[in-house]
Simulated scan of single mutants.
Amino acid sequence: MIYSISPHLNRCLLYNQGLIPYLEAHGWQRSLLNQRIQDPTLDDVLILLEHPPVYTLGQGANSDFLKFDIDKSQYDVRRVERGGEVTYHCPGQLVGYPILNLQRYRKDLHWYLRQLEEVIIRVLAVYRLQGERIPAFTGVWLQGRKVAAIGIKVSRWITMHGFALNVCPDMTGFERIVPCGIPDKAVGSLAEWIPGITCQEVRFYIAQSFAEVFGVEVVEMQPERFFRFE
C-alpha cells in the first residue's frame, strides 16, 4: 500500500511490525541510522510496532522518577540515548520510529518535534478528538491527559527513536513511574474515549498522517524478519 500526497518530494519505507522486543528494535534502528550516515541517499524509514512491557530512560533521565528500585527490579528497564525522562512501553501502545534524513526537510529539531506532534494530532482528529500541545512540554494531550510521548535522538541529522501513542494498553504499568517526569500530568489512552479501538486500525491513520505532515510517499514494505543486532 502507498500513502502519499501530491506532489511528494521523498519516499519513506513503512515497516508495519508486530510485537518486537525493545532491544531488537533498538538494534534495528541503530543499524538503519548507521547505514544512512554512510549513505545519505538511502530512503527514509518509518517503523510501526508494539513492545513487550519495558521501561526506558532517556540519556540523563532521573531515576528518581521510577517508583521501584532499579537495582532490584523485576521489570525490564533500559537506559537509551534518546532525550526525555522515563516512559513505559507495552502491548496496545503503538510506537513509531522514523529514521529520517532531516537534511531533506529542515535542520531544526524543534520543528521536527512539532511535526511528530502534528502527526498524532491529525490521527486524533480522524476520531473527532482534539489533540493538544502544552507549552514547555513535548507530546500530545487529550482533555488534560497525555496520550502520546515523544523522545528522539539525531546523529548527523539522521533521526531515531520517535513517538509512543497509547491506543489500548494496560495502563497499570504507568503507576510505577512518574511518566516523562511530569508529576502533575496524568496519562491516558484512546480506548478511554473510543472503546474497542485497536492498534491495527490506528496504524493506517498514522501512515496517512505521516505522509501528509512530512510531504512524503509512504510505501509499505514486507515486515522484516528479526534477529539480534549487535
Results as ranks from 00 to 15, higher is better:
Glu117Leu: 04
Ala61Leu: 03
Val95Asp: 01
Pro183Trp: 06
Gly215Ile: 04
Arg106Asn: 11
Gln143Leu: 01
Ala211Asn: 05
Phe68Cys: 09
Gly60Ile: 02
Gly84Gln: 03
Gln103Tyr: 07
Thr87Phe: 02
Tyr75Asn: 13
His161Gln: 11
Ile182Val: 12
Leu124Asn: 01
Leu42Gly: 07
Val167Tyr: 03
Asp170Ser: 09
Glu132Trp: 00
Pro52Glu: 05
Ser6Gly: 07
Tyr105Leu: 13
Tyr3Gly: 03
Asp71His: 15
Phe68Lys: 11
Tyr112Ala: 07
Ile150Lys: 04
Ile206His: 01
Gln200Phe: 06
Ser6His: 14
Glu117Met: 05
Thr172Trp: 02
Phe137Leu: 14
Arg104Met: 10
Asp170Gln: 11
Cys168Asn: 15
Pro21Ala: 05
Val219Cys: 12
Ile150Trp: 02
Val126Asn: 11
Glu201Pro: 05
Arg106Tyr: 09
Ile206Val: 14
Pro53Ser: 04
Ala191Val: 12
Val167Leu: 08
Asp170Thr: 03
Asn10Ile: 01
Gly131His: 01
Arg106Trp: 08
Ile37Phe: 02
Val178Glu: 01
Val126Glu: 14
Leu113Trp: 06
Gly151Phe: 03
Arg145Gln: 12
Ile20Cys: 11
Trp111Thr: 10
Lys107Leu: 09
Ile47Arg: 05
Gln143Cys: 04
Arg11Gln: 14
Gln29Asp: 06
Asp43Thr: 04
Tyr205Ala: 00
Leu100Arg: 02
Gln115Met: 14
